[in-house]
Every structure is written in structure tokens, then in C-alpha cells.
Amino acid sequence: MDGSDTRRGTGRSSEKGRISRRNLLQASGALGASALAGCTDSEYFGGAAAGFDEKAFIVGYQPFYTESWSSLVIRHAGLDEKYLPDEYSVGAWEVALQGAVIGNKMISEQTDIGYTGDMPTITAIANEETLIDMMAIAGFSNGQQCNLCIVPADSSIKEAGDLDGGEIGVTTGTCTHRFLLQAIQEEGIDVDLSDQGMQTIVTNIREGNIPAGAGWEPSIARSAIQENAAEYLFTGADYEANDAAGLLMLDSMVENHPEAAKGWLKAELEAKHIMATDSERTLDLIQQEGQLRDYERETLRAVLYKNIDVNPEVERMLFYTDYEAVDAAERLMKEEAPEFLYEDQGVISHIPPEERYRTEPLQAAIDELEDEADWEPLREAER
């Protein structure tokens, strides 16, 4: 937003906000209270490093980040088996509670394919140790998935300005953190940002230990909708702050196994088609994910298909895959997020080079599916 936005109020800068900006902790490369290790799903033979069998790929995914749920649809609909060439397979599905964990594992070549939020996506493709490519976006929204601020149910806080002088729980180094810093700056308020993991935030909100928290779906919806313990206060839509998830691949996979890379992108495109056109089947598939066993179906439905009351006209999820076909998504992934991490934070040493954004395999997948599939692979999925 430009400097004329009336939400800036007095125009005061928050000293705590500036400190938080300087200490973004490697933009999700290294996290504070939220540094969380990944684990391997027990249904697969875990513990393998990428490369143990170059045709059995390791997939890092985040069941607790809604914008990466196309990975759940691929997994539980068997789309990987449908589209990967016969000699290829998924060796392991590795769960991570933070995209940074997936990015770090890709840098150390322990993971071949990764689903990460926008911040760790940029951090990963900007690294100079291992070439990693952004192939597509797994999810995108106008600030309705990662850019969410909540307060306890029945809180006296009714608008962002009421947070002045208070404490907000946020997981540093995430898209939520970036959004919250923007909101603080635009509101001209002074707040105490407390570095907490996502589950700690919702617990503290439920118990009334903090006046506000910020985070991502589906944890926020579980607290607000399923448990009636929280209320949405504002979202990224109020500040033109979008959020996304990236689909990453090791450059060596793309170069050495191009048919497999293209096959995975076909699976991604069909997953988006299912999510955009068949909500009940989508929910059936997502409910097969054991990590989400504690989530009620209506909570899962809400985070994908029901708009938030504070932004009733803003769609919850936009099922895009080709970020170059969506101006706001391309701007976020190629300009806004990289510039924030490089120029504002100094967290990455350079803006990711253009060759790390690889969409040619996606275009090839789209072209082939237009001839092969009985559905049309759209660059922008229609709702």
C-alpha cells in the first residue's frame, strides 16, 4: 500500500517492530521458538536420504499448512503413481511442521520435492550451496491462509489499532511474521512480538495468556471454528499482503529426470483441478491424512472453501499453479518476498536468479494434459 493509506494513523514507527525486522532469523532458514524437526510418515520406509535410489523421490510436505494441501490430494488420490513414469516412485513422504525444515533438507540433498511457504521458498532458491528450482505454486490467497491475526473469543480488542502497547504471539521467520510487520508499520502501532510456535500461540490464545496471536491455517481455524476459542481480527487482505506456498524441486532432479519432474507437475495440476471442482472428494482425500485426524470435516471445509467473516468478499483459496500467469502471485514470489528478504532483512545474499524460477516443465505438462485429460488444465483454476 502507498503512504496515503489512512490506517497509518500517527505514522509512528514501532521500535519493537524494527527490532523484529532486523532479527528475522534467516527468514525461516533458522527459527527461534519455532525451530521444529521434520519426521517421516510411518506408512513409508522412512529415514532415507534423497539419492538412496535416484528414482525413488523423497517428498517433504506440510499437512499443517493449508496452501500445501495439493500434496495431500496427490498422495491420497494416488496421482504420483498415475503420472510418474513406471520406473519412478515416492520413496518417502516426510512431514515437516515448518517449511524451513523442508528447505534445509533440500539444501542438504535429503529431499527431492518440497512444499514450502513463500518465505522458505525464496530462502531455498536463493541458497548458493545446492541448486533448487521453484516449479509452481502449491497454493495462493489474498492473505487468507498465512496472514491471519486472531484474538481470544469475546476479546475487547475489535480492530488492529487496539493492539497498541500489547503483545502478539507470532512464529518468527514465516510469512505470518512478514505480514504482521507490515500491518504494524501501516497501523503505526507499538507492539511486543513474542516468538512462539504455532501450537503455543493457539494454546495461549485459548487460555487467555496473550491478547492476540498471528498464524496460518488450519491451526487458526481449529481454534476459531472448531474450538470456538478465538476470533479472526484482521487478515492480509486488509493490507494487500498476499500469501502462497511454493512447489520446489532439486535442479538435479529436473535436469536428470525431466519426465519424472513433468509427471509430478501433471499430478499437481490434477490435484488443483480436484480441489477447485470437487470439494467433497477433496475433503475425503484430505481426511485420509493421519496427521489431520483431530480436525473435523467442517473445519477442513472452512479453511478451503468458506470466506472469513472479517473479509467476506475475499476467497479463501485460489487454486493457482502457474505463478507467471497470475500477476499478484508472480509479484509476490519474484519481487515482494525476495526484496523483503534481501533489501529489508539482509537475510539472503542476493535476489534469486531468474533461472531458479523454472516454468517450462509446467508448460509442457499443461500442453500434454490438454491432449491427454478429459478435463482442462487451467493456469488459473476457476471456482
Score class of each variant (00 low, 15 high):
S13P: 03
Q185P: 04
E128F: 09
T116F: 09
V73P: 00
R75F: 07
D322N: 15
G165H: 10
L285T: 00
I351W: 13
G165E: 10
R206V: 02
Q182A: 03
T299S: 06
D294N: 10
A224Y: 11
N307W: 07
N104M: 13
T203L: 08
D251V: 02
E339N: 15
W375T: 12
G188D: 09
I366C: 08
D53H: 08
L24M: 06
Y239F: 15
F140R: 12
I19W: 04
I366E: 11
E372F: 13
R301S: 05
L25I: 03
E280P: 00
N204V: 01
E280A: 03
E109P: 00
I220V: 14
S155A: 06
E335Q: 08
M275C: 03
H257W: 04
G143S: 09
G143N: 09
A261M: 02
N228K: 11
Y65S: 02
I274T: 04
F340R: 04
D309G: 02
F45L: 06
R379P: 02
A241D: 11
D243K: 00
W69F: 05
I210A: 01
S28N: 05
E167C: 08
L304M: 07
A92Y: 13
R331K: 12
L25H: 02
S70C: 07
E67C: 01
T200H: 14
A221H: 06
E355S: 13
A261H: 02
Q287N: 05
I205Q: 01
D309Q: 08
Q98N: 12
A35Y: 14
E186K: 07
H257M: 01
F52D: 00
H76K: 11
A56L: 06
Y357F: 15
E207F: 09
A48D: 00
E109C: 04
K55E: 11
I205G: 00
I74C: 10
S349G: 15
L131H: 12
P211G: 00
G51E: 02
S108V: 06
N242H: 15
P152N: 09
S194V: 15
Q145I: 01
G117L: 14
I125V: 12
G197W: 07
R356T: 08
A381V: 01
L25A: 03
N256V: 03
S155G: 04
S14N: 06
I107V: 14
D374A: 12
M333L: 11
A267K: 02
D344M: 15
A244F: 10
I366M: 15
F57C: 00
D154K: 12
D294K: 11
E217L: 00
T40S: 06
R178Y: 05
Q98S: 14
A136N: 09
E354L: 11
G114T: 01
R297E: 05
Y232P: 00
S108L: 10
D192T: 15
Y65P: 00
D195K: 14
A276G: 07
F45C: 04
E67N: 04
T282K: 01
